[in-house]
Design a binder for these strands. Structure first.
Length: 578
RNA sequence: GGACCGUUAGCUCAGCUGGAUAGAGCGCUGCCCUCCGAAGGCAGAGGCCAGAGGUUCGAAUCCUCUACGGUCCGCCA
């Protein structure tokens, strides 16, 4: 149940009646009529802009429409009062029993907050997609957490979600990986090796080298690349992907599909995708203009095969074949997205690091061309994570061995803290991550603050049990016994949850969930604190079981919503603090 | 030279896609906490929403230009 949507449809019904009565002209568009929580509590529980939006097309004064609409709305049993305010806003006050209904719904309806917005549409969320050449580091972590929370959010909002990882196992970097594994293999056989430029010196390959030795013995020693490269490439890629899967699992990310770039080669899939574009007249041979400004030193004009991405908003056409006829990386990317389209997804989302910002336009152009503009592609960029220790910037250096890996984060601060904190910022804003502050148990730490609210509610439930108060059917409580202004404020915040889910899902912005949870937790704490001064606001009322049950029902509803929200973020709700 | 992202309180950031007097935390100032729910609570000060134009009943939000910061810029993956 979405209270705001319910009231909005009531407003629309009233407007339609006004049209029928001739108060409003025929054919008005009500799409922009909104029912929202007011910014200022003194403006009541909800506000609608209907009169102002419609004044111009209806050629009427906002006040006149507002007065007529107010009279109709006042007849609704849920609405306790209607006022015309400001330039023509209608402020609505709701009956207390409406809030009681919200609390009961949150307690008894497991789908409270879930939405049908997605209408079961198939949506593909591609994220992480790190090269299979090593373990995941901090930068990947943000993309992993963001993409995963976004996928969960869309699932909650009624989409049929597929979580997908694209394995870049088709390019030169996996050859580099193979040679590096080979060196570790020689090392495992007791040879002295040196890691020159163009190889990966990371120690994480030692294990792979030993595993290779265990598998093939000395078969590859003193042999040329042609004997072992292909096999070691596959062996190394598999080992790295296993490592990456373990990393992802440690932070609660589980993909539905791992899609191999290599599987596109030699199978005609790239050719098929390019042919689709060619059939649409979007492929041609040509020469690109040199880039403006600083000219690369070895620049020279060359004819190559180009995709006419400028037809779809890109700045220049993009090469899909090198001058020697080999595919550029862009060609398999096109084929991969073509495959997503042909698999029947209604919408696509790619989550990239900010350094890939330059590829957004060409990918969108490709998907628009391949799908005939029928499949929207949204690309979300995650900005850098700036690490701190004790407030001091922490510089990462591969050479000094201070490069922070995902597993370091999980070991030091845990999955829950990492995930929540990474979602306390918009994806396109840089994020500060302080190892010490994120684990601090204080009000200043949003992770702790939200968890503490959840724990407090469970603490009350435990105390209620000790006092012999039955809390097995809180939805049946008489909510009139928890209807003070302070208590209704919390109920109103709970009522915003379903609406917030839809806003966050529409915008592909999971951080809104984290901010909402903070606000909701804040209301829980505020109510708790008021119990210090005002005994009537305490959750456990001595010798008054029905009142206790009503008050517990209220905060229990809040904790249920916190659980739902944390679930979307992939964070385990706390039942007690330690 | 160009593209993309950003610019909101001293600091770190929200701002529900165009609504009412722009919010939160930290920091700051003041008050409260011997006990029954203080790993604190309440209140206050603090803003030309980077700047300038434009769109309209109405702009932090949309458009144009400018300034500053970040990312990126022919076959690299």
């Amino acid at each position: 149940m979405n209270l705001f949507a319910d009231i909005r449809s009531t407003v629309i019904t009233c407007l339609e009646a006004m049209t029928a009565e001739g108060i409003l002209p025929e054919g008005l568009d009500f799409a922009n009529v909104a029912v929202e929580p007011p910014r200022d509590a003194s403006h009541g529980d909800m506000a609608t802009n209907a009169a102002m939006v419609l004044a111009k097309p209806a050629k009427a004064k906002p006040r006149d429409i507002a007065d007529a609409l107010a009279a109709k709305l006042a007849a609704d049993p849920r609405i306790a009062g209607v006022e015309v305010a400001g330039p023509g806003f209608l402020n609505l006050r709701l009956n207390a029993n409406v809030w009681a209904g919200v609390v009961k719904a949150a307690l008894s309806d497991p789908a409270f907050g879930k939405s049908t917005l997605g209408a079961d549409k198939k949506i593909n969320v591609e994220y992480v997609s790190a090269n299979p050449t090593g373990p995941l580091h901090v930068g990947h972590t943000r993309g992993a957490v963001f993409g995963d929370a976004l996928a969960s959010l869309l699932d909650y909002a009624g989409y049929d979600v597929t979580r997908e990882y694209y394995i870049n196992d088709g390019g030169a970097q996996v050859d580099v990986l193979a040679r590096s594994v080979y060196l570790r293999y020689l090392e495992a056989h007791g040879q002295e090796v040196t890691f020159e430029d163009g190889t990966y010196p990371g120690e994480y390959l030692i294990e792979a080298g030993e595993a290779l030795k265990a598998k093939v013995g000395d078969a590859y020693i003193d042999k040329g690349e042609q004997y072992w490269l292909e096999d070691v490439r596959e062996f190394g890629t598999d080992a790295m992907m296993q490592m990456i899967r373990d990393d992802l699992a440690s932070i609660g990310v589980k993909m539905d599909v791992f899609y191999s770039e290599k599987s596109l080669y030699g199978t005609g899939r790239i050719e098929a995708a390019i042919k689709d574009l060619d059939d649409k007249g979007l492929i041609y041979r040509g020469t690109l203009e040199p880039p403006k400004g600083k000219l690369p030193e070895d620049w020279e004009a060359r004819e190559q095969t180009l995709f006419k991405s400028t037809d779809f908003g890109d700045d220049v056409d993009r090469p899909i074949q090198k001058s020697d006829g080999a595919w550029t990386y862009f060609a398999p990317d096109i084929a991969y997205h073509f495959d997503k389209v042909t698999r029947g997804f209604d919408e696509l989302i790619d989550v990239f690091g900010a350094d890939h910002g330059g590829y957004v336009k060409r990918m969108k152009a490709a998907v628009a061309a391949l799908s005939g503009n029928s499949v929207p592609l949204d690309i979300k960029l995650t900005q850098l994570v700036k690490l701190f220790k004790n407030g001091e910037p922490f510089k990462m250096s591969k050479r000094a061995g201070t490069f922070i890996m995902l597993r370091d984060l999980v070991e030091q601060v845990g999955s829950d803290v990492t995930r929540f904190h990474m979602l306390t910022r918009k994806n396109d804003a840089p994020l500060d991550f302080d190892f010490d502050k994120v684990t601090e148990q204080s009000k200043d730490n949003p992770v702790f603050y939200v968890q503490y609210a959840s724990a407090r509610v469970h603490s009350v439930l435990r105390k209620a049990a000790e006092a012999g108060i039955d809390t097995s059917d809180l939805a049946a409580a008489d909510m009139a016994l928890a209807a003070s202004e302070a208590e209704l404020t919390l109920a109103a915040k709970i009522a915003e949850w379903p609406r917030l889910v839809e806003i966050a899902a529409k915008g592909h912005e999971p951080h809104r969930i984290a901010f909402y949870l903070y606000d909701l937790a804040s209301e829980v704490h505020a109510l708790w604190n008021r119990g210090n001064d005002d005994v009537s606001l305490r959750f456990l009322q001595e010798d008054d079981v029905p009142a206790s049950q009503a008050k517990i029902a209220l905060i229990r509803a809040a904790s249920v919503v916190i659980s739902h929200g944390l679930g979307i973020l992939g964070v385990t709700p706390a039942e007690e603090m330690r």
